[in-house]
Every structure is written in structure tokens, then in C-alpha cells.
Design a protein around this nucleic acid. Structure first.
Lengths: 233, 233
DNA sequence: CGCCTCGTTGATCTCGATCAATGTGGGTGG
DNA sequence: CCACCCACATTGATCGAGATCAACGAGGCG
């Protein structure tokens, strides 16, 4: 028996295609393609024809919206196994950008929709993923609308701690946890609805309070997780 | 032939149950119940057992999240035909409150999920509704994170204009449009991530600029829609 | 080595929050 | 029918968090 082309896919069991058997998967595979995105590469620009759908295999992608005068807000983050694109819409409502080198699997939108509709399990999983994404997004609205800068930054760091997939998290279980942020200061600011300067100031404030340390420009050590949780509100 | 109990349902064609035939609808109807909610009545509190799902028939409901210390943010608005509740989750992630007298149709969650799963069309419609809700929610994140107070308030008014279902909109097509807001100043503030005072001040500012008029405390006249659009950015 | 991007830090400003007083309209009871 | 009340809205005065403007520092790459 030949090797299945998707056999080595890191997210096969978790992504939408996880519910397909080998033969079905093969036929889906035929219309798709695997591609790499370099860090900061834009896959689709908001308002463009929503030509493709797909899955994140490795890396992290961000969805962002912006005002005509250039203010930008990150409105979603896509991790491995998450759906890319917007089925059933003519236009991509948001810009999709890789925030680190990533691998994705893409399909032309219409055939992708057809496959989803032909496989109840896939459609069901997509529904559950979408409901979960909606909850996450709504929870983030509370942060954007009502939390202070410290709360936003502290909460963000706690999010990162709980997400080793994201960055090269070298979490040493007990005691201080050190990890690398996959985001620049500017990207953190866009995510939290702040400016770069405010993010930077809140980080140094947490550093001065001995709650965190900043051993490198992109790495963070959590020295006092309880205090960080308190700062997050 | 007897009258179907759902025959007079105002949202039958648009809601999830629209894809069922009369017999199927009857069996769904048997496990559900129609109820009224008074303005400000809470259907479910965030964190409660997500016991029910359903549909809005008339009126408007709001989803809200809040911090432990009482800051509140509206994270979603449910109009007639929208889904109420959170299928496939043990807990309601957000508080669901009627913002005006409303009629809803509710079902115990598990049997509701069963019906959805047994009817591909229903499941498909639910998926599309959920994807659309996710887009709307993400669009609102840009407002919360990056727009100024005037932009938020002006944008909110434009939203209301385009939504006659919502309030007793007595839109007189051309020229000035007058309508009643279904929300109090406090509810507008919770929606936009502002305070009551700021909402009030921005409204009077728009009034002074002759862009709107405020004939009654809950009614608004749009005198210059182009200028309002400009203020919304 | 020097550039160039990114991050930090400082000074100042401003928008929206907060605190406080006043206005208003709708409902209730005398 | 009117007077009062009470919740809601408006308006004013002040404060402060975060934005903005500006300068400086530090690491990475040609």
C-alpha cells in the first residue's frame, strides 16, 4: 500500500479532514495544495474575493480589520488545525497574515464547501469550531471594551503561558516559566487595542514589580504567576 | 387539516426551523415552548448550565460579559430568527437578557441538538448563521479597540437606521429619518465600550452640529446622513 | 562598522472617565 | 388633575490613563 500524502500531516486528527477516511481524504487532497507562508506574508487582503479555504498545519495566522485611515485591530488568531478563510462568503471580511513562518493546506473555496456539505461529520466539526471561535471572540470583546492596559497585557501573557503550541515555549513546569513571544510589540498592541508604547510600558511595569522578567526582547519569564493573575483581574 | 401551531410564527421562514416540513416541525414543537420575556428580564446568567436553546421570535436580546468587579460589555445582539443559547457547551458563556419585551421559542438543549443533527439543512443553516455572527462580532472588535467615541456613536446610529426590525423605526424614506432607539444610554454605553456620560455628550455634540436631532429621549432624527457617515469614519 | 528595525523611555497632551449637580418625563398616589 | 417621585438623561468640572510626539538604545544583518 502506498503512503498516503496526508499521512504525515501534523493536524490530521484535529482538523476538519480528520473525519474523512483515506479514500475521501485522497480525493480532497487532489484539489488542495500545501504551501508555506513566510512570517508577515499576507494570504488574503480584506475585501478580496474569498477564493480559498483551508487549514493551518503549523505556525500562527492572524485576522485583522482596519479603518480607512490605517488604524488596525487584530480580530482573531488561527492556530494549527483552525479553519482558514470564510466559507459561503464572496469576500474575505478580514486580512489573513502569517505572524510566523507557517504551513497551510488550501483548497478552492467552492469545492471545499462541496466536500464539507457531503460529509456530515466534517460539517458538524466545522460548526463546533465556529461556535467555539465565536465564544472566544466575544470574550475578547470584554477585554477590548472594558479592561485596562495592565489587565490586557497581563491577561495576554497568561494566554501565552497556556498555549505552548504557539511560541517556542520552553516551559519548565514548576517555578518560573520562560517562553518566547511569537508576536512583536506592535502585534501585541494590535491584538489588545493599545499602542506599542503602552504595551512596552506595561511590560516594564510588570518587570519592575518583579512579576515577570524580560531576558530577551521576545522572551518572557513569569516569576510570580499568582501576581500576574491578579494583575489580569 | 388542523392549524399548525407554528403557522403564525413570524420568523418561521427565516429561523432554523424553516427547513423542516410540517410533520418534523410538529415533533420539534412538542419539546419546545414559547415564552415571553419582559424588558430587562434575564434568560440565562453567564456560567449557568446551558440548559436551553431556541430562537428569538420578536424583540431583541443581548449577550453580555462582565469582569468580577462589575464592568460590563455587550458582546452580541440577538434579533428575530437568531439562535438563542450555546449548543454543545455545558455552560452559557454569556448572560442573555431581553432588552425589550420579547417572545422566544425555547427547547431543552440536548433534544434541540439531536434535532439539528438529524436535519442536515438545519445544521447547515446554523453553520451559516454562526459564521455570519462571527464576522459581525469581529467587525465590532475594530470598533471597540480602535474607534473614537464619536465614531462609535455615529456608527451605532447608522446601524440602527439600517435595522427597522429593531425599534419602532418610523423611517420616512427620503429626507430626515426619525426612529426610536430600543436601547437606553447605559445599554448603548455597554455596547460601545463607553460610559453613559460619553454617549450622551457625543449625541448632543452631533445634535449641535445639526447632524441629528433628539425629539424625545429615546428618539433620534437623522438630519444629515452623509455627515453622520463621515463622523462614523 | 554602520545602518535599520524594533523596543524602551521620557515629556506632554487629550480623550474619555469620574465625580457631582441639575434637568426631565412618565408613572403613582393623594 | 396635579404633585411628587424616581429612574434616566444631560451638563459641568476635574482627573487620569493611555495616546502622541520625540529622543535614545540595542540587537541583527549586510
Amino acid at each position: 500500500m502506498m503512503n498516503h500524502p496526508c499521512a504525515d500531516c501534523a493536524v490530521r486528527s484535529r482538523a476538519l479532514c480528520g473525519s474523512l477516511d483515506d479514500a475521501q481524504l485522497l480525493s480532497l487532497h487532489r484539489i488542495g495544495r500545501r504551501r508555506r507562508l513566510a512570517r508577515d506574508e499576507i494570504l488574503l487582503l480584506a475585501g478580496m474575493d474569498a477564493a480559498i479555504c483551508g487549514n493551518v498545519i503549523t505556525g500562527v495566522l492572524q485576522l485583522s480589520a482596519s479603518t480607512p485611515d490605517g488604524r488596525e485591530q487584530t480580530v482573531g488568531t488561527l492556530y494549527p488545525a483552525d479553519l482558514i478563510g470564510r466559507p459561503y462568503a464572496a469576500e474575505t471580511p478580514f486580512t489573513i497574515r502569517a505572524i510566523c513562518d507557517s504551513e497551510i493546506c488550501t483548497f478552492p473555496r467552492y469545492p471545499f464547501e462541496q466536500v464539507v456539505e457531503q460529509h456530515v461529520d466534517m460539517e458538524r466539526q466545522l460548526l463546533r469550531q465556529t461556535l467555539a471561535a465565536l465564544d472566544d471572540t466575544r470574550a475578547q470583546m470584554l477585554t477590548l471594551g472594558r479592561r485596562t492596559a495592565v489587565e490586557k497585557v497581563a491577561g495576554f501573557l497568561l494566554d501565552m503561558v497556556g498555549r505552548p503550541e504557539t511560541g517556542c515555549s520552553r516551559a519548565s513546569e514548576e517555578g518560573p516559566i520562560t517562553f518566547d513571544l511569537p508576536l512583536s510589540r506592535g502585534q501585541i498592541a494590535d491584538l489588545l487595542g493599545l499602542t506599542i508604547e503602552t504595551v512596552s510600558r506595561q511590560l516594564t511595569r510588570l518587570k519592575i514589580a518583579n512579576i515577570i522578567a524580560l531576558p530577551g526582547v521576545r522572551s518572557v519569564t513569569i516569576r510570580n504567576q499568582a501576581a500576574l493573575r491578579q494583575a489580569a483581574g
